[in-house]
Design a protein around this nucleic acid. Structure first.
Lengths: 174, 174
DNA sequence: CTATAATTTCAGTATGTACTGAAATATCGG
DNA sequence: CCGATATTTCAGTACATACTGAAATTATAG
């Protein structure tokens, strides 16, 4: 696959950003490449175009497929797997957000819950600390409940809400 | 400062999570310690309690102060700086979210805008690619506009909205 | 101005994660 | 079942970031 300068820059940038979103650089680059490609690509072509090891592509694609950021397709008369990117930006955001929630929020809530239980029969920890911890748990549960609600909204409703911007305050704040 | 087992676990856990939120481990631990402390602490005490180098505490605290996650205070008759944690969870989230936006979203939007400009006079990049890139830019601008709106809402309105959960769909989706 | 305490800087080192490439494994046509 | 091609595994290595501790700097009390 031949890349124009803009395409190269795009892929490099996406790789950089991927590292800040919980993917690693080469995985993000693979997704970027597939995202720009009008037709499915096979692993060798990806490895060659990006200049990374074939094995690395193998691992990266599997991760992308697991996350539903990439899908596998077949071509008649070709044993190789071909890959296409998830192109719906909503789905991409959903997947990335879901991954973050799982890695960044869920463990903390679980941990705080356990703390809350332990603190009930804990004589040595100051009351002040107990309040801080339980308060934080309550806060996180509120925020996560909201997140779940948002994610369950139909896409159309979500888009509508986003486009309302500040006006939402008027509706809610009566 | 003396730590009970629950407090130790809390600090360790917060450190782990910090690494996933764009802070580094020891910085997050410092915040956690201050968050649990009923009174301001000075740098030496933090270093000793957490078992990290004094210099590391210095750098970490400065970062936390810059981010407004920690404030400096003084005590009469003591030359040392004392530190207290930002305890408002909304403010903590705001700060962390702001940091992420700055590092993860802003550069990408800026980059995509530049791409869009360059693509106007780019004969070699396929039309298909142009559409993908401009579509993505549009999407990101919608999402970021929404984020700004949310962050500008009064805290009370925000809390109200979060507690509404799914019912928000009914209001919007008419 | 000097002595002392507090803080910061920074070169060197440690640590964790990603990447490579060779070897092993799996898949398929004949 | 065999040979050829595609894919995956994994030990070793590279790389980026964080941490230490000694030295330099800054601030303050007398």
């Amino acid at each position: 696959m031949k890349l124009t300068p803009v395409m190269q820059r795009y892929i490099v940038h996406w790789g950089e950003m991927g590292t800040r979103w919980g993917l690693n650089r080469s995985v993000a680059q693979m997704h970027a490449l597939l995202y720009l490609s009008p037709q499915p690509l096979h692993a060798d072509e990806i490895a060659e175009t990006l200049g990374v090891a074939r094995s690395n592509v193998s691992v990266g694609l599997r991760e992308l497929v697991t996350w539903n950021l990439v899908q596998v397709t077949q071509t008649l008369g070709d044993r190789r797997d071909f890959f296409v990117a998830q192109r719906d930006p909503w789905e991409v955001v959903r997947v990335v957000a879901e991954g973050r929630k799982r890695r960044e929020l869920d463990p903390t809530v679980a941990f705080l819950k356990q703390c809350a239980v332990d603190l009930k029969s804990d004589g040595e920890t100051p009351a002040y600390v107990k309040e801080q911890i339980t308060g934080q748990l309550e806060f996180m549960e509120t925020v996560m409940g909201w997140y779940e609600s948002i994610m369950n909204l139909p896409r159309k409703t979500l888009l509508k809400m986003m486009r309302m911007g500040q006006r939402i305050a008027k509706i809610i704040g009566d």
